[in-house]
Design a protein around this nucleic acid. Structure first.
Length: 891
RNA sequence: GCGCGCUUAGCUCAGUUGGUUAGAGCACCUCGUUUACACCGAGGGGGUCCAAGGUUCGAAUCCUUGAGCGCGCACCA
């Protein structure tokens, strides 16, 4: 493109789609192609990133946009560093989330009970269609974000390869006795007709009544509850074993007629967990409908379990004829009324309680006893002498087996503590769900037959059980109707995407453990923990080396984005309006690891303006210079300065990126681009015209920015006719390319720049345009020499300024003496100089005091002392200069 | 209750291992703008870094205590 054809403003719409197609068409998103085409060396270090697969429940939101920005910055950076980089995309079938979404849609369109009305197969078909559509939408959106992921390796948690991995893992754990079917209390969503894990609960506060009552008039201990109806299923009262009030009662059994199907048989038991100082010091134990009470029964197997609430949320026959069939709430009112009538109710008080609700279906969870599948986290793994919990702990502390190379590094570190604490509280993981959308449990049952290949029988010897990767042969087998918790398949993500269970594939050998993962902190337990569990168990290694935890994105008022608040922002819309680069920049600026950040249109404007600035720098470079890029020869101090600075910030940026300090990396490049390059060097170039350095530095800048701003940098690269794709050019490695004493140049020129900047501040003759304007008014025509004036005035004015006029020396051709009267307000100037002088003297004094302190000289590092000393010299010199100016101005 | 985080300019936030006179963006004020860029430029004002103690030659940074806000986990019946 000819320089004159380049539009003044960057228009992302003109570029983004086409550039993405160009990248994708080049094949360079695929690391194999990079090697084939010689962009990456065969023996290059592998670098892998896995996309946390978005749920196929609809469209991506800004949080996804932020994640994609983070991952793509990392991927592009490492690809440009010449590493064998794989950024693998995917999608998650998101079992409950997707099914509940589709059911909601079906209900909205007129169905009352989709599961009944459609049946398993037809409902699954509907969900599959929906999921496929979402998957396509997601792929489009990820492309729109500019993500450089390898689409040929796209993985879906519910495709054939992943099903194989899931079944293989299930069977392995089953054979090792780590997956078991057990009768335990579980969290049950009546609305969703399914279990959910502890982590899927959302606790909400709500008002409730705490009732204190006695089972009967002569029952010795009152108990309290917020769920009186469950008391129909009480089988014990627990007290602290040392509690003098109740100690003697332990072991006694009370038979109580209270309206349940059978009289309650309440045994008084002693349990250390009971807090004698709380309430009545006694707990009515309902093993069937409380997790803690069920645990008490594990310690006291002698007590019974009576289920009084069913999976339909209604009272069971065991609750007695008065209550059976009523909802829990109806039963509560009736039961409380009965207690009151019999004079058993001693106290009612209003309290607030926390209850668990299903995060997907929204209803309050009912705790019921059921037979479900569990992963045993405390059981010893055969042949390993350790439990899953142990492995999960080791993986982030000492490293697996004490091997530091097999240790997951969590950034920021504080999430380690959060994770470890969670592990301490971890119970066996309930993995079976009664919804239909998901991996079917690979277990089949049938009555005993003579065919007993690989068969095990359950305890009662009645039903044969077969667990296998594929259905067993033979007649009469019926598969377990349940499906797996969606996190079971997500837990395998780092290796199921790379070919496992075939551990010999190139991808697996090359890219596992994954180098870099990122995720929001809200998903650490769900996902990170499960990946660590699965990988350490099955592969005896860690799933990933580094995981970067980020916060959640909030709106400009600090609220979470949510549908109900109506404050959602579609990243694609905003990307279209401001440009995807601007969006990426806005999402990564000013954020620190692990902390929430806010999003606003102001940020978008700032970012868009910056992108446009970069575009216009390129216009200058294109219009003011015709030289092609070559190894630049620094000719002046300015050249050495800019090259030295460049090399400095290249290293600094690399440091930030290697530690995932995205915001600081951006700030580093941004300030170099604006403060050093655009404001300073470009102006210098107008005089010195060292095109080679200008080109060289600008091309380096483009490459530094590319990971963050892939579109505009690639677009500029195209207009510059550099040829090739910026995406696969090497990230700048200045210290190797350039033979420059950067340290010296840097120091010399920083002094010069500082001096000039001080001059600008001191004499307020910036912009120079104003000065030349004034000169013109005085009959000095400098229009032709403008650039020279602009630059030299900055320097020369300083040395010859006497307070009221200045001697301008413009190269060796032209010099002029001008009065500064009218340009500078002399009185104001005097006041300002005096103020500055006072400040400088004060500062000098404080530095002297510091240096005079013997402890400082003794203890501070030499570099700091030297720095302080030179600082003092500089300050003294500055003060002297100010004094001179002040006296000349006064005379 | 236990744990974690946050508190820095009017607003939103950076500040890696303690070390130049604490930074940015936005907002505000002044000046400028046919010149790569008004999606613009040059300047400026504005901060007892939540409080109090401590460690140190030196603290926004480390320690202790407290306050306010937010979050997570567990919930005591």
């Amino acid at each position: 493109m000819e320089p004159t054809d380049i539009p003044k403003a960057y228009d992302p719409k003109e570029w983004e789609d086409r550039l993405y197609r160009k990248w994708e068409g080049s094949g360079f998103f695929n690391p194999d192609t990079c090697i084939e085409k010689g962009v990456t060396k065969e023996d290059a270090e592998p670098f892998s990133i896995l996309m946390p697969p978005p749920n196929v429940t609809g469209v991506l939101h800004l949080g996804h946009a932020m994640e994609n920005s983070i991952m793509d910055v990392v991927a592009r950076y490492h690809r440009m560093r010449g590493e064998r980089t794989l950024f693998l995309p995917g999608a998650d079938h998101a079992a409950v989330a997707t099914q509940s979404r589709v059911e909601k849609n079906l209900v909205a369109s007129g169905m009352t009970n989709p599961r009944q009305e459609l049946g398993r197969e037809r409902l699954l078909e509907k969900i599959r269609t929906f999921a496929d559509e979402s998957k396509d939408t997601i792929k489009k959106q990820v492309r729109a974000m500019g993500s450089s992921c390898d689409w040929s390796r796209f993985a879906y948690t519910f495709d054939d390869a992943r099903v194989l991995a899931v079944n293989t893992m299930f069977k392995k754990m089953y054979d090792d006795g780590l997956i078991y079917k057990g009768y335990r209390v579980v969290n049950w969503s009546v609305k969703g007709q399914s279990t959910c894990s502890d982590d899927e609960l959302e606790h909400i506060e709500r008002p409730a009544t705490l009732y204190t009552f006695r089972y009967s008039k002569d029952f010795p201990i009152p108990v309290a509850t917020t769920r009186p109806e469950t008391k129909l299923g009480d089988t014990a009262v627990a007290v602290h074993p040392e509690d003098p009030r109740y100690r003697d009662l332990i072991g006694r059994i009370f038979e109580i007629e209270i309206g349940a199907a059978k009289p309650l048989s309440i045994r008084i038991i002693g349990d250390e967990e009971v807090d004698p100082s709380f309430g009545t010091g006694a707990v009515g134990v309902t093993p069937a409908h409380s997790q803690t009470d069920f645990d008490i029964r594990e310690r006291h197997p002698e007590i019974n379990l009576v289920q009084v609430i069913g999976t339909d949320g209604k009272m069971t026959a065991d609750a007695g004829p008065t209550y059976a069939g009523l909802t829990a709430l109806e039963a509560r009112e009736k039961f409380v009324a009965a207690l009151r009538e019999k004079g058993l109710l001693e106290k009612e008080e209003d309290i607030t309680q926390n209850v668990g609700t299903s995060d997907r279906f929204g209803d309050v969870i009912e705790v019921v006893p059921m037979e479900q599948w569990f992963v045993a986290v405390n059981r010893e793994i055969p042949g390993r002498d350790k439990s899953l919990k142990d492995l999960m702990r080791e993986a982030v502390t000492s490293g697996l087996g004490g091997d530091g190379n097999r240790r997951v590094s969590i950034q920021p570190e504080r999430f380690e503590k959060v994770y470890l604490r969670w592990i301490d509280n971890l119970r066996d993981w309930c993995i079976s769900r009664q919804i239909w959308w998901g991996h079917r449990i690979p277990v089949w049952y049938k009555k005993p037959t003579t065919d007993n290949r690989q068969l095990t029988t359950d305890e009662e010897g009645e039903i044969e059980i077969y667990c296998g990767v594929e259905a067993p042969e033979g007649e009469g087998w019926e598969q377990d109707p349940d499906t797996l918790d969606t996190w079971f398949s997500s837990g395998l993500w780092t290796f199921s995407t790379l070919g496992w269970p075939d551990a010999e594939t190139n991808d697996f050998k090359t890219f596992h453990p994954v180098t870099f993962m990122q995720m929001g902190y809200e998903i650490v337990f769900f996902w990170m923990a499960r990946m660590i569990l699965m990988t350490t168990y099955a592969l005896d290694t860690i799933p990933f080396k580094t995981v970067y935890i980020h916060g959640i994105l909030r709106d400009k008022d600090g609220r979470k984005f949510s549908k109900s608040l109506g404050n959602g922002i579609d990243p694609i819309d905003i990307g279209k309006e401001y440009g995807t680069d601007a969006l990426r920049l806005a999402l990564l600026s000013d954020v620190s690891p692990g902390n929430d950040s806010r999003f606003s249109t102001e940020k978008m404007e700032t970012s868009r303006n910056f992108v446009n600035k970069l575009w216009n720098i390129s216009r200058y470079v294109a219009t003011m210079s015709t030289a092609s890029v070559e190894t630049p020869v620094p000719k002046s101090l300015s050249d050495r300065y800019i090259l030295g600075r460049l090399s400095h910030i290249v290293n600094e940026t690399a440091g930030h990126l290697s530690e995932s300090r995205f915001s600081l990396a951006i700030e580093t490049i941004r300030s170099f681009t604006v403060d050093d390059f655009a404001d300073w060097y470009v102006e210098i170039h107008k005089v010195e015209k060292n095109d080679a350095v200008l080109q060289y530095v600008f091309d380096a800048l483009l490459r530094l920015w590319h990971p963050f701003l892939p579109f505009v940098t690639e677009a500029i690269n195209e207009t510059r006719g550099n040829g090739g794709l910026l995406m696969v050019t090497h990230w700048p490695d200045i210290s190797e390319d350039m033979d420059i004493d950067t340290e010296t140049a840097f120091n010399e020129l920083r002094l010069l720049v500082t001096k000039i900047r001080n001059l600008r501040a001191t004499y307020r003759i910036d912009p120079i345009r104003r000065l030349t304007g004034s000169l013109a008014a005085k009959g000095i025509d400098l229009s032709e020499s403008y650039p020279a004036v602009e630059r030299l005035a900055r320097i020369e004015i300083a040395t010859s300024f006497d307070g009221s006029s200045a001697e301008l020396i413009i190269s060796d051709r032209l010099s002029a003496s001008i009065s500064l009267e009218g340009i500078i307000d002399i009185d104001a100037e005097r006041a300002r100089l005096a103020k500055e002088l006072t400040e400088a003297e004060k500062y000098a004094k404080s530095l002297e005091a510091k240096l005079g302190n013997p402890s400082f000289a003794e203890r501070a590092p030499e570099a700091v002392v030297a720095q302080t000393r030179s600082l003092l010299d500089e300050t003294n010199a500055k003060a002297e200069e100010l004094r001179g100016h002040l006296s000349s101005i006064s005379s």
